[in-house]
Each structure stands twice: as C-alpha cells, then as structure tokens.
Design a protein around this nucleic acid. Sequence first.
RNA 1: GUGGGAUUAGCUCAGUUGGUUAGAGCACUAGUUUGUGGCACUGGGGGCCGCGAGUUCGAAUCUCGUAUCCCACCCCA
Length: 396
Amino acid sequence: MNDILSEDYERFTYFINTATDVAQKYGFHFIETPLLEETALFKRSVGESSDIVGKEMYQFIDKGENDVCLRPEGTAGVVRAFIQKKLDKAGGTHRFFYHGSMFRYERPQKGRLRQFHQFGVESFGVDSVYEDATMIMMTSDILKRCGIGYRLQLNSLGDSNCMPQYRDSLVAFIESVEDEICEDCKRRKDTNPIRVLDCKNEKCQSLYENAPKLLNSLCEGCESDFTKLKKILDENNIAYEIDTNLVRGLDYYSKTAFEFVSDNIGSQSAIAGGGRYDRLVEFLDGRPTPAVGFAMGIERLMELIVMPETKREGYYIGAMDEEAVDLVVGLTHKKRQSKKVTCDFKAKNLKNHLKGADRVNARFCCVIGSDELANKTIWIKDLQNRTEETIKLTEF
RNA sequence: GUGGGAUUAGCUCAGUUGGUUAGAGCACUAGUUUGUGGCACUGGGGGCCGCGAGUUCGAAUCUCGUAUCCCACCCCA
C-alpha cells in the first residue's frame, strides 16, 4: 500500500495523461469497471492454476453471502462488462483502455505492491495479427513518450490446435527427467508445466536444453501469424527478442505473448505485458470473439519516467505591510479567476517574498509595500526575464 | 509461503567498550538595509531513539517479544 502525493502524483498523472492521449490517438475509449467483482470471474478467466487466483486474491464473503474479491487484474472485468453490455452479440470492433487500482496479496518488495495501478488496453473483434502488432506499437509509443527505455520480448503460445499437444509432449519430457529436477519444477509440472522452461536452477536448465520447443510446435496458422508479426515489427523499426520461455502467467493467453522489460528497476523488471486471448470471451459465456490487450504497471514505471522541464507559471502576491494584507488577499481572489496564484498572508520584506515566489515556481512576483499602498499601485517582477514594473492596481 | 536486512529530527543518516542535556547535512523559519530571487553568513524551532517487557546504579546502545517497512525467492504489471 502506498500513498501517492507531491512529486509522485505529478509523475503519476503525467503518465496517465500521456498514455490516455496515445490510446485515444489509436482510437480507444475509456472504460471504468468496479474494483469489486465476483471471485468466480477470476477463477474462470485468470485460471485456478495461477498464483494470482491460487493465493493472491483479496477475497471475502460480503453481507449478501456473495463470494467477491478486489480485482487482481483488469482484463477479466473488462471482458465481463463487454459481455454484459452484449457487445459480443453486437459484433464489430470495440476498443477500450482503463487505468486504476489492482490488488494482490503478496509479500511486497521493490516494484511490487499489494495495491498497485495498471494502465491497460483491450481490443475486441479483431483477429488480424496487425492488431497484435498495433498493441505492441501502442505500448512502445507510450514508453517512448515517457522517455522510458525497454527491451521487448516476444513469443507465441500457440492456440487450441497446437498448444495442448505441445503441453502433453512437454509433460512427457519432464516426466522423463523428473528424478533430477528441482522441487519447484516438480510442482510446476502439475500447475503450469511451461513454467519449468524458465527455471533459474542451472541443473534444470541444462536438462531442459533438449526439451521440445514451443515455437517448433506451432500449427500452420500460429506459425504464419507469428512470422507476419515479426515482419510488421521489423518494418516499423520495433526491436524485439524472441524468448521461447516467455509464458504469460494467466491462463487466458494464446498466440502472441509479449513483455516489455526494463533493466533499471530491480528484480521486478516487467513493465508491461500482454497478448492475445481469443478464447476468453467464450470462456465467460460470451459469443466467441477474438481479443488482444496489454497492461502496464504504473508503479514500476514511475522512477523511469523522464518528466518535461517545469516552467514558471502564474503569480505570487505578497505584502510588505500589515495594512496591505487585506488588499493582497482581495487581489489574489480576483486574479485566481483566470490565473494560478499563490498568496502569502504574512507581511515580510521584499527578499523573502522573492524567495517565496521562487519556491512555488511562480512567473511573476507581485508585492505591495507602503509606497504602493499610498499610490494605489503594485510592483511586479517577471522572475524569468528579470524585468520589473510598477502599475496601477486598476490595471492589474 | 521461504530467506535476509532495517527502524534515531520532515528527509538522508552518524552515534565509540552501556555513562551527563542524543548529533550532522538537507529542508523549514527568521535575521544579515522596508525594496531585489536561486548563492553566502548568522540565529531559531523541531526527537516516546518503532512499540512492549527484561538486565543494569544507568539503555539509542545488551537480551527477549512484537509491529512496520525494505530487499530477494516464488510469481507477476
């Protein structure tokens, strides 16, 4: 759990605004879904075998005996809303983006919080691999506009034609070496066998060199889509690495899987992840609808965002005489109808007012002292150009 | 769920073998000319030393418990 304020808030909103602008340029529309959903939704979509559902959900029974939980990710809720609004039956394409809090009960560490924020995008109704490429381009655009460097990792997970077959052959392979692999891998064999491939245990790794490769087992359709995707990215100058071990942790992904990683933020290096999930809508009782999406973890991006230079803005108004304070307050109220104004209620000398104006990064420092009070004028200094003038109050 | 580290001023941290009134830098506030900013100088405010027990003449310091945070594993954004 983390508070977001001051400079963090500046960065946070800067990211949301930038990502929103990019998503809108791609023709996506904002969608807001509830933080609370029925637990069953995530069990059916994310998958019972995943850690997220297995042990990381903030789950409870509410006063109406409903089994609910705070959403651990964004896609399931958006798909639920998509189906509930009968957009699956309406046909056509529907493109959404969202941002908000997600909750996972895990041991916190750098870049991993129990309440965190994601910015995500979901596209429904487009089965073309061009849409997959578009998702990657959008992610890349957002990161670039925020000045964030990244590596893009790419894989294909196959579809219902080729994936189950591959899974079986992999499990058979694991069983052939089961006596020699680590405890974690033995567990993974049952929960999520593909995960064994990126086990960090060296002994396991050497054993798995001979394991069947997912990319060699793709069916014709998946194979040609993957080839096409790489071609599109090449032609649009988006660099990528093929990572045959890249497996999305959520059960609903198929075909394209991608992950953007940063080497500069500690061990939690994934800053964005996504892929295609053509079967999810029908898993949740909608009409079969191809879909693809991605999500970005905002907290992980925070320290990587390069903020634009802040410019001096607005006015600072202060008094050097107690008698002028009331006047200054009135002027501030008037000026605030159109400008950002900071007002200091304490009478102090000019130097302190100038310091104060600097501190709030004001463009103009306006001061009324005894001379100005007598002459009904106000002294104004442009702190950027270092020019100054004294004008009549009626002109201020 | 497993392992390690930390907790002293608003922030980053010193603090000797246990010994007077617990320090520094930054930040804040004021003054250095009732009139010129980012710098400098001088002063000032600000601490349940995470919390609770214990040992001791005496604990920020030693012991135990507890809470919180951090880092890593697992997994994920």
